[in-house]
Amino acid sequence: MNADGVTSATGAAGLPAVIDTSKPSVARVYDCFLGGKDNYEVDRQVFAQIDSVAPQMKELARSGREWLIRATRFLAGPAGMDQFLDLGAGLPSAENTHQTAQRVNPDARVVYVDNDPVVAAHGRALLEENELTHLVMADLTKPDEVLGHPEIVQHLELDRPFVLMQCSTLHHVPDSEKPHDIMRRYVEALPSGSYVALIHFHDPQDGGEGTELARFVEDVFARGDMGSGYFRTREQIEAYFDGLEVLEPGLVQLNDWWPDGPALNPPTVADKVALAGVARKP
């Protein structure tokens, strides 16, 4: 690391990846919430700001990871899907999309997409798993470039059904970049029979603690050094599913989407500030 807080690493394709450790990274801050170790002091400062006021947000992060496992298990199993395009890969964790999908269907192919150099630097762990798992550095806000990327086209058959995963991604896209237009383009490109899995920060508009927490976290994320993290209304999140058939139980709080068993603990205010759902393109 040099005096400006910039360090070099080797990316997923063997190319140098420049990591700026003087500014928080979305991937590294999420890593803090999940109790990981691939983060720097600047990331831990963002985490500490939120954790000191709303420690329940750690549980929400874990609920998001557990939701991703349940959704992937369903998609690779009963839904019969064998192709996954996971946008916003983030840092490798204890259980990643490809591990869950390939446990259910050993032939499932997974391509992760991210544009964060720190993800590229740590992506080797994903690539070493097997020849059906790949990491591509690309910008998810540019759907035509993503869907036309040579490596993605090489590893996925995009003319037949696949799963598009937008998990904790679009809430980092500001309104000025038109996230609904971005999502519409992805949906238009999906073949019939494809699925979308989505998690998004939610402003419950409850006039109380839920909205208060949403505003606080948004202030820390979007208006702080990290620069993104927007809480949207149910109606705004539902609009991402335009043109799709949302599966039961609909767009719901994470722990309410086909849980593995009965809830042993009462919901917290943090449970109100994220929604998730799975939808199919007819």
Rank of each mutant, 00 (worst) to 15 (best):
N2K: 03
N2I: 11
A13Y: 00
G14D: 05
D20Q: 09
S22F: 01
V29E: 04
C32K: 03
F33K: 03
G35W: 13
G35N: 12
G35K: 15
K37I: 08
D38C: 12
Y40H: 11
Y40S: 02
E41N: 03
P55V: 04
R62Y: 03
G64E: 02
L68A: 12
G80L: 05
M81K: 08
F84T: 05
F84S: 03
L91W: 06
S93W: 03
A94W: 00
N96G: 05
N96S: 04
T97K: 12
Q99F: 04
P106F: 10
P106H: 08
D107I: 01
V110R: 01
D116L: 08
A121H: 11
A125P: 00
L127K: 13
L127P: 11
E131D: 15
V136T: 06
V136A: 09
A138R: 03
L140Y: 14
E145P: 00
V153D: 01
V153Y: 05
L158V: 10
D159N: 12
L164Y: 02
C167T: 09
T169W: 09
V173F: 03
P174A: 11
R184W: 01
S194R: 05
S194G: 13
H200G: 07
G210K: 10
T211G: 14
F216T: 10
G224I: 01
G224K: 02
D225G: 05
G227C: 09
Y230V: 07
E235R: 11
Q236E: 15
I237M: 10
I237S: 04
P249M: 14
Q253C: 10
D260C: 06
A263Y: 02
P266M: 14
D271A: 12
V273H: 08
L275M: 05
A276D: 02
G277R: 08
V278A: 07
R280K: 15
P282L: 10
